[in-house]
Design a protein around this nucleic acid. Sequence first.
DNA 1: TTAGGGTTAG
Length: 683
Amino acid sequence: MDLQVAPPLGTLRPLASTHHRPKASATAAPSTSSSSSAESLKPRPRLPRQPHQSPVPRPRPSLPALCAAIERHAAAGRHADALDVFRLARAGAPFTPLPLATYHSLVAAAAALRDPGAAAAVAWHMESSGSEMGVYEHNLVLAMYLRCGMLGEARRVFEGMAERNGVTSGVVMGGLVDRGRPRAALAVFREMWAEAGGCGEVARPRAVVVAVRAATAAGSVPAGRQLHCCVVKMGPCDDDGDRYLSCALLDMYSKCGQVDEARRVFDGMAPHQRTIVAWNSMLAGYVLHGRSEEALELYHEMRGSGVDMDQFTFSTMLRVFGRLGLLEHAKQAHAGLIQRGLPLDIVGNTALLDLYCKWGRMEDARNVFERMPKRNLISWNALIAGYGYHGMGDKAIEVFERLIAEGIVPNHVTFLAVLNACRFSGLVDKGKRIFQLMARNPKTKPRAMHHACVIELFGREGLLDEAYLMIRRAPFTPTANMWGALLTASRVHKNMHLAKLAAEQLLAMEPEKINNYVVLLNLYICSGRQDDACKVVETLKRKGLCISNACSWVTIKKKDYRFFFKDSLHPQCAEIYRKLDTLMKEIKEAGYVAEENELLPDIHPDEQNISRAYHSERLAIAFGLISTSPCTPLRITQSHHLCRDCHKIIKFLTKVTKREIVVRDGSRFHHFRLGICSCGDYW
DNA sequence: TTAGGGTTAG
C-alpha cells in the first residue's frame, strides 16, 4: 500500500519529541523501535511526479508508529484520522494487541464521532487483546457506547463492572440526560451525593455539571437550586471546574425561567472566568425571555470588555436586532462577522433571513436563503412565513412547492406558514387544497391553529357557512382561536347572529380577556341592543377591568413616539395637525373619498365617537412625514386593527408622498407602496 | 491526573 495516498497519513508528524503520552505508550508497547518506518510517516514535500517513473513501494509503518499516529490524531481532535489509521493498522495484518494508551485514544475517537460501527470494532479489538480492563477503561467504553446510542452494549458493560466510581455515575448521568431521562439522572446524582456523605471526592465538579444539565433538561428549579447549594457546600474548586459550574448554573436558571437569578450567577463570576460561552448564554437567556433591551445592553458591555465575539454571539444578536427593529445594527453585525472571516452558521443565517422577513425586505431575505450553504426546515418555514405575512401568498406557495419537490417533509409550522399565506392573500382554493393535503397524512393532522387559520380564510371571503361548518366538524372541542376567527369573519360580513354566537362562546372560554368584552360591546351597539351593551359595561366595572386607549407608535431614528386618538400631548402638536390637514386636502384632490363609518371591534366605543380624522395612526404618520427626510420609509405599530378609512388614506398617502409606509396592526403587517397595500385589502 | 461538562433559529 502506498502510504502517500492514504489520506490520514498525509498529516502525520514525525514520532520525535511531540508524543503526548510517551510513558504509557512505551510501557504498554515494548516493541522494537523502528525509526526508519517512523520517518516514512513524515509529511513529504509534494514533488511533481515524473510520468515515466513508477512510484517506489514504501514499507508498511511499524505498529508503534501507527499507534503513535493514532494517539497524536486523537489528542489533536482529528478523530476520523485516528480511526483511519486504526483501519490501516488492521488491514491485511494478523490480529495484534495494541497498547492500552492507543485503545484509550480510539475509544475517545469513536465516542467523539458517535460512530457505532467504529465503536463496535474498537471495543471488539480491545476486548480480544486481553488487555487488563480496569475501572478507567470500563468507564471509557461505557461512555463511548452511550454516546453512540448503543444502550444494550452500555448496559452489558455497566452490569459487568467489578468496580465503579464517581466517574461511572457521571457517565451514566450524561447518558440518561442525552436519552431524555433527566429525572433518572438526578436520582443517580442524589444516590451518589448521599453515598459521599453530602460532599467529598465523589461529587466532583464534572458530575455536578452533568447533574445541573439534568435539572435544566427536567426544567426543575427546585432540583437546580439544590444543586446550586451543593456547589456552595463544595466550596471553590479549580478554575476550570468553577467556570463550567457557573456556566451550567447560569444556563439552568435562565432555561427554567429565572433569568434574574442567571444574571446574579453571571455577575458573581470572576471576569477572567466569563468565557464567550458565559456571555452568550446570558444573552440567550435574555432573548429566551423576550428581554431584548437587556440583551442589547449586555452586548454593549461585551464589546466594551474586549471579549472575542463568535458566530453564536452574532446569531443571537441578530435575533435581538430583529425584535428591536434595528436593521442597521444587524447589517453592521453581519459586516463585522464577514470582516472577522467568520461565516454565518445556519442559525445566524436563519435569524438574518427572519429579520429581513420581519422588515418586509423579502428580496434580501430571499438572497440570504438562496446563498445559505445549508438549510433546514426552520429556514424554509421562516421564508414561507415571511412571504405570507407580507401578503405575497403566491411566492409563499412557490417556496412551499419547491420544498415538497425537494423531498423535504413539512411539519405543522410549515403548514401554518403556508395556510397563513393563503389567508393573508385570500387564496381560498389553494388553502383548501393544502389543508386537505395536511389532513391526508396522519403525521400532520391539522391542529386547532390550522383550523382557525382556514376558518379565517373562508370567513374573509364571505364563506361563513363553510367557516362555521369547520368549527362544528372539528374532531376536537373548538378552541378560542377558532371562535375568534369566526367572530372576525362574521363581524366583517355583518352576520350579527353568528358574530354574537361566537363572541358569547369566546367570552365564556376566556372571561378575563378584555378584548372579548370590547368586541361584544361593539357588536351589541352595532345591532342596537343598548341594554346588553350596558350589561357588558357593568360586568367590566364589576371585574375591575379597564379598556386601554388605542394608540400608535412611529419609530424615528431608533426612538418610538406614541400617539393616542386626538392627541394633543406632543410638543409639535400644532404642526402635526397642520400637516395632516394639508395631506387630507392633497389626497382628496387625488380622488380619495371617505369610507362610511365603521365600528372597530377592538376599540372602546367612546373613543370611536371621536372624529376619525384624528385617529392615532394618522397623527403618527403625519409626525413621521415631518420628522424624516423624503424617501425614508415609515414604520408604524399600533394596538388595534386598521379601520377601512385609515387603510384607504394610507394607500393614497403613499401615492401622493411617494413614501413607503409599513403598518403593523393588531393582526398583521400592511406594506403600503404607491397606492397599493400588501394585504390586497383583505384583513 | 485521568474517562463524564456549557450557549442558537421558524
